[in-house]
Design a protein around this nucleic acid. Structure first.
Length: 569
RNA sequence: CGGGGCGUAGCGCAGUCUGGUUAGCGCACCUGCCUUGGGAGCAGGGGGUCGGUGGUUCGAAUCCACUCGCCCCGACCA
């Protein structure tokens, strides 16, 4: 392809609204343009990257035996009503009416429609298992689109769905996806982790996320380098640092106006870890008291998994329910349900005295109060791994894929059943599996860039080679360039030739910014000795070769990286 | 949805507080000369309803009200 005939609007300056590195670079290098908040246009180079990613996904999905199909993105409401999600999901679903007044929505995901299809077309155990997938646009009216193409309101997703006769079959389909995802992300050149995740509203028990570490990510993951434990911090378990307790006797202390752990800690001269933090929450089943060590934070997702949807109590509710002002709540003497973090099981603590302006020192769990013990705190870097005790590391990461065991959550309400050998009817056991190609692209840029621009991983770069004829006025430069261009193209190598009538400096800058892995530089200077240069974008390394050997050498370099990318994970 | 910031040429910005020439600068764009291995130079040129609406005023990019849009933090996120 020729630069002069392609719309690649590179920018010298960073657009002011861009914050994330990938956003800045993708806009500057002419890959994407924004239409409105959370709505992006993929320019020719950007779309090539997406298509290359999708091609990898298709190849690897084919190896699982999955079949590609395409579903509508405009859905009738009644199917979503049958599974209950029409009412469960709030403003995040785009809703509309057709001309006859029928309620419709734009697909945020396709469990309902896939299950609807399976209900009609799968009858027998003989047809199982099935894996169906599509690469389709999804629409979600995000509360806050952000970071360029990392979180948008309209985005392309590869979503697949497995249908099995039982849990064992589902486990197999799940495993096939795990393996395929590892191959896909590896080929896309990403550093990533597979972590345990919260199944959330998807239902089912098991779920994993694929996370590409990056400061631009929205999630945090806890990792153990020693035993390999890895989980989203929403559910990551950890053992907070141990504390040397003091053998305080039980006594009330006057703490006038000191409410927060921080304030009382300073006032009494005892570190926060010696405190019990008491938080009142309101759940569907009534109030509950949540206890944490003073140096820990509550992970609300963990609490919600235990007690269902809940929220912090208001100040007036605290007084009404516990009979004490917030700030002086203690764990003892209440008849509400009490849940406490594991870290509090042992020790001697200070906590509220359930009396304004007083705290109690010398509280002993088990003796002075009882509770349901569970892991409720937020895992932090440096905490001990709950499996092996080694130090955990917490990193920010971009979610690039997820896999869920759904079970029969959708097949039951949509009556997606099959008949077994004995003619008995059973619901299909399902899984669902997503990948965001645009997030792969963004994560790849986040992880692969330098001060000059993008450094694409080989397999997802828009082209294999960027060819730079430095002097378009020179017949010799043009002749050699066109020859190389033609021969490489003939060998199936994708070449982008910068045939613009620009100065050499402009071409170098744009080539580095755009980030194609190899640059072939054809200039008058080199040609005087019959030489051209091959530059590796990532390392900046340049090698000089005879012009007539360039095609061979480039072919060798491209094939080598391509092979490396295909190695199984 | 709460908090903060910003809307002036394709991009990046100044001017707004303290109203008053023809609204300015850099980059980009067009023409010519010159130059040509890391975003050249000189000369000339095109491009703006100052986000929108309404108000105050002799006079509004500038002051006031409303409104729309975009970004960031948080809440949210099958």
């Amino acid at each position: 392809m020729r630069f002069s005939k392609t719309c690649v609007p590179t920018l010298r300056e960073t657009p002011s609204e861009a914050e994330a590195v990938s956003h800045k670079l993708l806009v500057r290098a002419g890959y994407i343009r924004q239409l409105a908040s959370g709505l992006y246009i993929f320019m020719p180079l950007g779309w090539r990257v997406m298509e290359r990613i999708n091609a990898i996904i298709r190849e690897e999905m084919a190896l699982t035996g999955a079949q590609e199909l395409l579903l509508p993105l405009l859905h009738p409401a009644d199917i979503w009503q049958k599974t209950g999600r029409w009412s469960e999901i709030g403003d995040e679903m785009f809703r509309l009416k057709d001309r006859t007044g029928r309620d419709m929505c734009l697909g945020m995901t396709h469990e309902e429609i896939m299950t609807w299809l399976a209900a009609r077309e799968i009858r027998s155990y003989r047809a199982l298992p099935q894996i169906w997938y599509q690469i389709q646009t999804k629409l979600r009216d995000e509360a806050r689109p952000k970071s360029g193409i990392l979180r948008t309101r309209e985005f392309i997703m590869k979503d697949s769905y497995s249908f099995d006769r039982d849990e064992a079959g589902l486990a197999q389909s799940y495993r096939l996806h795990e393996e395929a995802y590892h191959r896909i992300f590896r080929r896309c050149g990403l550093r990533f982790y597979q972590v345990e995740s919260d199944p959330g509203m998807m239902g089912g028990a098991t779920a994993h996320e694929f996370m590409a570490p990056s400061p631009a990510g929205e999630d945090e993951i806890a990792l153990c380098a020693s035993c390999g434990y890895s989980a989203n911090v929403e559910l990551a378990e950890s053992v907070p640092p141990e504390v040397e307790f003091r053998d305080w006797p039980y006594e009330e202390v006057h703490t006038p106006g000191k409410r927060t752990v921080q304030e009382v800690s300073e006032f009494l001269g005892a570190p926060p870890a010696y405190f019990i933090k008491s938080l009142l929450y309101i759940s569907g089943e009534g109030p509950l008291l949540v206890l944490l060590r003073g140096d820990q934070e509550l992970q609300e997702k963990k609490l919600q998994r235990l007690v269902g949807p809940c929220r912090p109590a208001r100040k007036d509710e605290v007084v009404e329910i516990l009979g004490v002002e917030a700030g002086f709540i203690g764990p003892a003497g209440h008849d509400v349900r009490i849940v406490a973090d594991e870290a509090l099981r042992e020790g001697v603590y200070i906590s509220g005295a359930n009396r304004t302006d007083y705290h109690v020192r010398g509280i002993r769990p088990g003796k002075d109060f009882t509770a349901e013990w569970t892991d409720l705190h937020i895992a932090r870097s440096g905490d001990g791994c709950s499996r092996c005790g080694a130090a955990l590391r917490v990193e920010r990461a971009i979610e690039i894929g997820n896999i869920f065991k759904l079970g029969t959550k959708y097949s039951v309400p949509l009556k997606a059943n099959y008949l077994d050998e004995d003619g008995r009817e059973h619901p299909l056991v399902m899984g669902s599996y997503g990948i965001g190609p645009a997030r792969i692209a963004a994560a790849a840029v986040e992880q692969n860039n330098d001060e000059n621009g993008i450094v694409w991983p080989e397999e997802i770069a828009p082209f294999d080679v960027m060819l730079l004829p430095l002097q378009t006025g020179s017949a010799e430069v043009n002749r050699v360039s066109e020859e190389i261009y033609g021969e490489l193209s003939g060998r199936g190598i994708d070449v982008f030739i910068d045939d613009r009538n620009e100065r050499a400096g402009v071409k170098f800058k744009d080539a580095d910014l755009i980030g194609i892995p190899l640059q072939v530089i054809v200039g008058e200077k080199g040609l005087r000795d019959g030489l051209v240069e091959i530059k590796t974008r990532r390392t900046g390394e340049k090698k000089t070769v005879k012009a007539d050997a360039a095609v061979e050498e480039v072919t060798r370099m491209v094939r080598r990286t391509a092979r490396a990318g295909h190695e199984p994970g």
